[in-house]
Amino acid sequence: MTALTASAPRAERALHDCRDAYAATLIELAAADPRVVVVVNDSTGSSKLGEFGKQFPDRLINVGIAEQDMVGVGAGLANGGKIPFVSAASCFLTARALEQIKVDAAYSNNNIKLCGMSPGMAYGELGATHHSIEDLAWLRVIPNLTVIVPADPVETAQALRWAAEHTGPVFVRVSRMGVPDVNPAGYEFVPGRAVTLREGTDVTIIATGTVVSRALDAADDLALAGISARVLSMPTIKPIDTDAIVAAARETGAIVTVEEALTSGGLGGAVAETVVRHHPVPMRFVGVPDAFAPTGSTSWLFDHFGISAAGIDAAVRDVLDR
């Protein structure tokens, strides 16, 4: 996709770093349950867990820069009856320790929570080594692993509370780039369930995580052009909400997926598999194409790849041929 002009700034919206909700929720969980511990790879600061470490010094286990060890230690802590939240930059957690995630977490069915911090292109300027645009694709195919991508602070907190209650391996993608609140007041996260944030009849935009607000912005713009777009937020990539996707295909006839990740294998891949199996309709995929992203700020990279209201708008018009 060619570079597109940055979308105009929307009305003054407060933007939140979801790591703040992450850190506050872990403190809340640890205060309520002595089994809750954290494992980091010298990532206390980048996970915003400094205060957690002050309040629960024995329960913040820092293995140093050693990701395989980190996930294995988490599995052992789970064996010992703890509820470990393994907290590290998503690029290193998911790539360096992928076999430990497969074997020690998922295949072993250990009660371990893997928290991928600053995923996607949050470390835009640092280059492709530090981008985590592959994580959704390679974690989604691992059996017995729940994959959650919260869109805002409320959803982040609720997903973590659910993960702590749930017995089994869970991956939670925790963004650092500023996001507005997108879920309505009184929202309750339900694992495996999509959230209909806007009704529509001509097309469905399915978005996950940091890009949900951009999908809503695109739907606003499309409405001005007479195009009625449904917007689904998909906080759980696995298990995917098949019913919501099939209903969207049947009722709106076209789907555009949006994600801060490679479009192959992640949300786009998961939705496409579901659509082809149950109710084929035309689709378009907004995200990072089959390429390593260049260096640039996160917002510049979003615009570069058309992960913006304007880019989503264009993808919708393309799939509708309007």
Partner: peptide, 25 residues
Amino acid sequence: VEANTGPLGHGLPIAVGTAIAAKLD
């Protein structure tokens, strides 16, 4: 069986985790 093993180099990190858990307890 305490841990699913097979790929080498997995057991010692897991054992470190079980030992830390015992120490915490």
